[in-house]
Design a protein around this nucleic acid. Sequence first.
DNA 1: CGATCGTGGATCCTATACGATTCGCAAGCG
DNA 2: CGCTTGCGAATCGTATAGGATCCACGATCG
Lengths: 223, 223
Amino acid sequence: MATMRPARRLTLTEDVYSSVQALIMDHAVAPGARINIDALARDLEVSPTPVREALARLEADGLVRKRPLAGYTAAPLLTREEFEELVEMRLILEPPAASRAAAVAAVPGVDRLRAEADLPDPRPAGEGYTGIAAFTAQDARFHHLLAELSGNRMLHEAVVRLRSHLHLFRLHFPPAHYGISADEHHRVVDAVAAGDPDAAAAAMRAHLTAARERHLPYFGRAS
Amino acid sequence: MATMRPARRLTLTEDVYSSVQALIMDHAVAPGARINIDALARDLEVSPTPVREALARLEADGLVRKRPLAGYTAAPLLTREEFEELVEMRLILEPPAASRAAAVAAVPGVDRLRAEADLPDPRPAGEGYTGIAAFTAQDARFHHLLAELSGNRMLHEAVVRLRSHLHLFRLHFPPAHYGISADEHHRVVDAVAAGDPDAAAAAMRAHLTAARERHLPYFGRAS
DNA sequence: CGATCGTGGATCCTATACGATTCGCAAGCG
DNA sequence: CGCTTGCGAATCGTATAGGATCCACGATCG
């Protein structure tokens, strides 16, 4: 009963990777803020090497930027233009994903999807944070699961890689519209369950377009 | 005129990253083969730290796999199933990219694209290697440039990230079909130059579908 | 003769120390 | 008073050393 350290998966690097990702999610590091490798290593109680390794992966993911000989910084927030590009990208990827998921139509997968969409409104009462985080996480799970059900691993990976929800989460927190979004999710699920590819793609397009309209006003200079 | 080292960009890590990528391209490391960090560091005459950092990035790119406490290995070749997924993915991404490029239709961009497509058949005579590599690189540049001309940075990045050509290059080398592929490229260019989004998307779909048929027989167990 | 266990080698993973480069701030000049 | 210039601190990048873990080979027991 010597080495009984609690967490510490197989590699420290993996741990650090998750930790930093969480730090960005929780706004512990502001967008654009510098990330000090040594300080981070001290806080996490590891040596700088695994921190460096984790940051290299995060850079490939686009979550941090690296200026040579100047250090790492947290990725900046999405500009309005980039947000438009993100929506366009999701409109390219996710309707085909929904379409293929409907074509494959494996029953247990559809059940999991419906279960995700059926989750009760996570909004507690008037909480600002936890409710939003839970909703965002649920929304992310729904979209990721649907992409997985498409049966195309590369498509799934591409959707996950966009990190749409991470970006949106960092942007702002529209406290309403939860129910509306859930309704739109259900329409997608119904089309997938019915095995109707075209309807599934259309429902997803409608959802993404509507979500775009819901988020746009929060960008200051509205259209 | 003291420090006049030739290569060595701003960071060693970037250098190592490119080097390892080239090693995989050139079949210097077989797919699935183990990659020894220390040996690689010795060969490149750097310390293991930047090698480790570069490998972390390459892992995020999917070019190498990391088994905890067991070392890195080069990514395995595409299976037939994964090849089909790759084609499906390209059919999702690249026709919309061509469509948008046609809609934007910036003249200098189109000129660059046509120049890329106009390059003479790089096949020397009966060479097995260099001609193929040059053709593959040219084909990659064409597709990447087209994605860039779409104006959507995320779409561009997604196309590049697929590394379709790297995978194809590692798979086999169909020594023919060069002229056919070039013709199909020209049809795409013409549609983009004409500012016809639908035609551009259709031409790209035709190209990808035809390329799929050209590559499929090389997979052994044909359909 | 086959399977299991112990040992040796190699490798990865982590920690620490040193040099190179950049950025911030204050002093000096125009 | 504003701009430039030089210095200093902080930080990154790199190299090296030590501890822990896993894989392979050979010996031993059933």
